[in-house]
Write a protein that binds this DNA or RNA. Structure first.
Lengths: 195, 195
DNA sequence: GTCTATAAATCGATAGAC
DNA sequence: GTCTATCGATTTATAGAC
């Protein structure tokens, strides 16, 4: 292993801070987690955090970026390499049951978004990312429809918006009421796909 | 005007505190509003708040209760006294466009729910209220379907869960991205109703 | 029941040494 | 770039007077 350059160690530190913050934010929530706790858990002090992130919400944005990327990758992976539409739908269903509102992805996104709504910089960043993610999901839907010869009765972007909102709404409610089933999301996807 | 008894003045104070807190929570958010600000804006001091509410989240729960009641009443009112199904649907559409994610109802509910997720007492209270509201909405849907002879292809409770989640998801996203249209909700309602 | 005063704790952010 | 030390501001919550 070659010695790391300064640039490399900084990238490493930054990544470690984001990873640690992600874990703590998911476990305890954004507001309930202090920068000091993040720093200590990562093996640094607050100074290291502020050397890499100007403010707490900048760290929050970085964490959210990672989380959202992972979520997109997870959805793609959930569809798997199945070759029939039913199998792919089933794969998504299994993923949804295990992930919607369970680990806390949705809670974190939503807590962060609502808690920082005063900060214009954060608001626009979240809006941009929302549009990006919706677009990716829409492309995925359009591609699935094309592959399996399904006719969509609404623009893919509308269906994506619909499903994303449904997932957020179910996830945030499920976080405080685990009795809420997410089957409605899977059912709806099947319905949207078939009509 | 007869002189108020002690009990009456306390009820009045409590109501005034809730009303003031509601306004500030909606404007600035739950976390960003301190109890001192609430007390001062209502013309009291923090002592008065703590005489009526044991903790901040207890005040938050009281505010949310009022907000949720108002929301249910508003939905009922939005349907209006129209006698055709199309008119009632149109009334709901107008209400949705003006209210979903605009004033901040959804943001407040969601911010409060996610920020207090550690507090078991709050969690169960929110879960109970969620089930209650979903039930009320389900009854409303079943009643509308019955009145206008519409056949529902899913249990009313599932449709209610679906619409509520959709409204929350759209509202929370619209709070930070006003470019998001809510027509998808109205469209979906019409679709759910007709099939 | 409300007010005054204050406790007690925390947190985000900064300054300066290394 | 990271650490130590600390500031400064704020907050929830409490104790005691009225």
């Amino acid at each position: 292993m070659a010695r790391l350059t300064r640039k490399e160690t900084q990238v490493q530190t930054r990544a470690l801070l984001i990873e640690t913050a992600k874990r703590l934010f998911l476990e305890r929530g954004y507001n309930a987690t202090s920068l000091g706790e993040v720093a200590e858990a990562a093996g640094f002090t607050k100074g290291a955090v502020y050397s890499n992130f100007a403010t707490k919400h900048e760290l929050g944005l970085a964490v959210l970026e990672v989380v959202q990327e992972e979520r997109v990758v997870a959805i793609l992976g959930a569809l798997g390499d199945a070759h029939t539409f039913e199998d792919r739908l089933a794969g998504f269903g299994r993923w949804a049951e295990e992930n919607i509102g369970d680990i806390g992805w949705t809670s974190l996104e939503v807590e962060f978004a609502t808690s920082t709504r005063q900060i214009e910089e954060v608001r626009t960043a979240l809006a941009t990312r929302r549009q990006l993610i919706t677009g990716v999901l829409a492309d995925l839907i359009a591609n699935e429809a094309d592959t399996f010869g399904i006719e969509l009765d609404a623009p893919a972007i509308d269906i994506a918006t619909h499903l994303l909102a449904l997932g957020i709404g179910l996830g945030v409610q499920r976080a405080f009421d685990p009795s809420l089933e997410v089957t409605v999301l899977v059912d709806e996807l099947g319905r949207l796909a078939r009509r």
